[in-house]
């Protein structure tokens, strides 16, 4: 049996993947680039932006992590990981060349194909940029298929802005409208100050052909969606991504229940109409 066949027999079995690069993004977050070791398994690994993997470190456990790289990047996946728990802490202690396990990709991502031909408004708060980064890069690699692309990204302070090396360059591009904001600026900060919702005054959108994508801390959704609704965007064109506790990633363990759905197989990306119908979701 090939490794791929073996893995298909057991969806709980992690696929060994080597860490090929580690970039320190902030004090707490690092970007890990992984390459699945087995050729057959690696080639079969196809995902859409917004999907996640279960990161598996034997002896410690598993944690769901959304994929930050674009599907257009072949052969490698990137995970932007905050050192926040046992598994992510153990990952942060790993070094380049070490092997970890991944399972996936799991869940429902952003409707990339459906978004084509439209404008896109992406709103991220804090670590919420991690899954959106995949979508942003995918749009970038397929830029001619999209209209206007606006990115609003807020963090607590300048040192917590993720992927700043990329975004600092992007601020000067014509094909992306990127606005960064922080709650607590320092002397070096030359961008906006305040909550991400404040940035909606600065943008113009055509609601009938604009898709929204939101990811951030749970408290953020309500306010960002309110702004999007004020701009007359359709409820079923606004997409949100939820983070929940997960043990299996495949609709069995029950931990990620959100309303009557499971974040792992029904989400983690939902449109706002669906999310409105999920009790305690927003």
């Amino acid at each position: 049996m090939t490794a791929y066949q073996e893995l298909q027999q057991n969806p709980y079995r992690p696929w060994p993947a080597r860490i090929t690069s580690i970039i320190d993004l902030t004090e707490q977050e690092r970007l890990f680039e992984l390459r699945i070791i087995d050729d057959g398994v690696r080639e079969a690994f196809e995902f859409t932006s917004g999907q996640f993997v279960e990161l598996s470190i034997f002896g410690v456990g598993e944690a769901p992590i959304s994929i930050s790289s674009a599907p257009s990047k072949q052969g490698f996946i990137e995970l932007c990981v905050r050192n926040a728990g046992d598994v992510t802490g153990a990952l942060h202690r790993k070094q380049c060349g070490d092997v970890v396990g991944i399972r996936g990709p799991f869940g429902r991502g952003f409707p990339f194909e459906e978004m084509k031909g439209n404008d896109v408004l992406l709103v991220a708060g804090g670590l919420g940029i991690a899954p959106l980064k995949s979508l942003i890069n995918h749009i970038h690699d397929d830029r001619h298929d999209f209209g206007k692309v606006t990115i609003l990204y807020g963090a607590k302070n300048p040192s917590e802005i993720l992927f700043r090396y990329q975004f600092d360059m992007w601020k000067h591009r014509d094909d992306f409208d990127l606005i960064l904001t922080v709650d607590d600026p320092d002397e070096s900060w030359g961008d906006e100050v305040g909550r991400v919702t404040r940035l909606f005054d600065m943008i113009d959108i055509e609601p009938e052909n604009t898709y929204g994508a939101i990811c951030g801390p749970p408290v953020m959704y309500k306010y960002v969606i309110e702004e999007m609704r004020n701009k007359a965007m359709d409820v079923d064109k606004i997409y949100v991504s939820f983070e929940r506790r997960m043990k299996c990633g495949i609709g069995k363990c029950g931990h990620c229940g959100v309303g009557h759905q499971y974040a792992c197989i029904d989400g983690p990306v939902f449109n706002f109409w669906e999310a409105m119908n999920l009790q305690e979701a927003i």
């Binding site: 944690a63 728990g85 749970p218 983070e243 929940r244 506790r245 363990c253 029950g254 931990h255 229940g257």
Partner: peptide, 17 residues
């Protein structure tokens, strides 16, 4: 496991749904 346990729906960052 049981959904009646406190930590059943809590995530690493401390949020408990």
């Amino acid at each position: 496991d049981s959904c009646q346990f406190t930590e059943f729906a809590s995530v690493a960052h401390g949020q408990n749904f």
